[in-house]
Design a binder for these strands. Structure first.
Lengths: 241, 241
DNA sequence: CGCGGTCAGTAAACGGTGTTCACTACCGTT
DNA sequence: AACGGTAGTGAACACCGTTTACTGACCGCG
């Protein structure tokens, strides 16, 4: 897979080591503990050596983000795959529940990837679904759309002022999906579908972020029932069982 | 208001100065620029002097959070007050729009207060609506409930497994409201009401956070129509026009 | 074989950070 | 006039990211 020049093999090796170490530090002690010097110390090298691999600490953190996103995707995909294709509602539920479970189990990773202001990691604003979890979300939604006609088509009432906006997004979604190898027939990507995807993602994200950050307006010791009720309500909106 | 011993007056003065300076640094250069030494430099004192006022940088940041929350509350309250009491839907819309506008105009403050993992500011987990914006949200919702019976009462279908949870929150909400001087008759605080408040907050938060962080699954240049459509949809769920 | 370039890694240094500690000098009170 | 509390200082410690000039070892080429 990677170039075999052996030199590059070693390089890729330590690069993986760096990322793994950064991940470990992040998980165990928080993002402020992800320090060039700490990583170097643990790898038995000196801090400046890391600049052979990353331009800066921010750059490293950005790669850690991508690493985490990849892991999340790798965690979610098999879980969805385990649900039969002919149970689309259950598939969507599964990915939502899995995402919540992952976020609660990996709060620091979640924070870094999903709730870090772009400036913190110096992420260029022009970096939409690139590598990030959005891709996973799109993939799953894309599969769903391409294999079923579950979503209410034109009958779903998309507010008029939104139609122009949504039409613009469609191309973006199409391109994103195409980049991952999924081909969705044009006629399946209706405006209502895109609208639903956005709503779904916003609610899922909102609930999970609130839960991870403990920012409910009052103490909520166990938000799982709340989450489940959100799912069933969302499903009813879409037209699931 | 503050003790007049003049010594304490001076102290309160510089304390305000410190907070104001921290706010300015946060707004202009991001939270990483909020540095004890930078603050001290600007006040013409030395960094260790700040320890006379705050236990640590984290402690200072926590107070900045409270300061921001207070400001947010002060921004929102008059905006709501400007909407006649007999237009409850418009009142809710107003606070939601105002919150979104504030967040977009003050992304760094929003990030610090609403999307900082508790560990970052060393916030004790047991710090629910205390001083934070949750209180404002509760106040507004509380006023709404106590003055109108807009929300669908028992007819709203609260999923069975949730009823126990929600019942537990009710006391919490009651106490929080009472602490701010708002007395809501017990019978107005129905389970469905609490459920709605949570849903509303989760969706509002989710949309705004996504927008501030630019974490929509694809590029969304202008999320305002999306936001407005969310509002009208939420309103229809509650039974507004 | 040996020469030369590429490149991972080093050592030292710069300026910045949070935090601690011993210390001063003032201010209000007794 | 003496005292005690307290805001503020200065020096120091242990970190941090980043830059610079430097060392070797490895690899391919003649």
């Amino acid at each position: 897979m990677t170039e075999g020049t052996r030199r590059e093999k070693l390089r890729a090796d330590t690069e993986r080591e760096i990322l793994a170490c950064a991940r470990r530090l992040l998980v165990e002690d928080g993002s402020h503990a992800v320090t060039l010097r700490a990583i170097a110390r643990e790898l038995g090298i000196t801090a400046p050596a890391l600049y052979r691999y990353y331009d800066s600490r921010a750059d490293l953190l950005r790669h850690v983000c991508d690493d985490i996103s990849a892991d999340l995707a790798a965690t979610l995909t098999p879980q969805i795959a385990a649900v039969p294709l002919d149970q689309p509602a259950e598939r969507v539920f599964t990915v939502c529940r899995a995402f919540r479970r992952w976020a609660l189990a990996h709060p620091r990773e979640f924070t870094l990837v999903f709730a870090t202001s772009p400036e913190e990691t110096n992420t260029p604003v022009n970096r939409p679904a690139q590598d990030h979890f959005g891709r996973v979300f799109l993939e799953i939604a894309g599969q769903l759309l391409s294999e079923h006609k579950i979503f209410l088509s034109e009958s779903l009432d998309v507010p008029e002022p939104l139609r122009a906006e949504l039409a613009a997004y469609r191309d973006d979604v199409s391109a994103s999906l195409a980049a991952t190898g999924i081909r969705v027939p044009e006629e399946k990507l209706q405006l209502g579908t895109i609208y639903l995807m956005l709503q779904w993602w916003a609610r899922l994200y909102g609930h999970v972020a609130l839960e991870v950050f403990g920012r409910f307006p009052f103490a909520v010791p166990d938000a799982e029932p709340l989450f489940e009720s959100m799912l069933t309500e969302l499903a009813s909106v879409v037209g699931f069982s």
